[in-house]
Amino acid sequence: MYTFKNRSQVWDTVGMWAWLFHRVTGLALVFYIILHIVLMGTSLLRGPETFNSVLGFLMGSTLFLILDLLLAAAVLYHGLNGIRILLFDIGIGFNRQKEIFWVLMAAGLVIYLFLLWRVLPEIF
């Protein structure tokens, strides 16, 4: 009889986006790590020449280095928000969860800008 539910979500909260990005970056990292292990593993098994040429190709590719910057952003976000979640797990920060999020994001931005400052001259 009752055939319908309102499936609307709440989108205007910090926690919603913190959670969603955590899951998206977490899944992206799993995907990356599988790719990474398979690629490194197979090229290593084929001997030093193959390994060197694969790495040389990747490190020489601008596209790959830009993807690496995206990877760094994902790790940074996932790690910093991961600290926030772990604080909750030990019972800290329930009445300051949004403030903790923004402080960590500010720290992340500083770290990322530092990273760009060091890495961008290498790429371009």
């Binding site: 709440v10 909260t13 910090v14 926690g15 913190a18 899951r23 909750f88 019972g91 329930f94 969860q97």
Partner: peptide, 26 residues
């Protein structure tokens, strides 16, 4: 519970269920 805090954001009594759930997880 993945500590999303949407419950706490909307509770008209300003309860933070996330914290109750953490106490239970412990």
């Amino acid at each position: 519970c993945h500590t999303q805090f949407n419950c706490a954001e909307v509770c008209p009594k300003k309860i933070v269920p996330t914290q109750a759930i953490q106490q239970l997880k412990k």
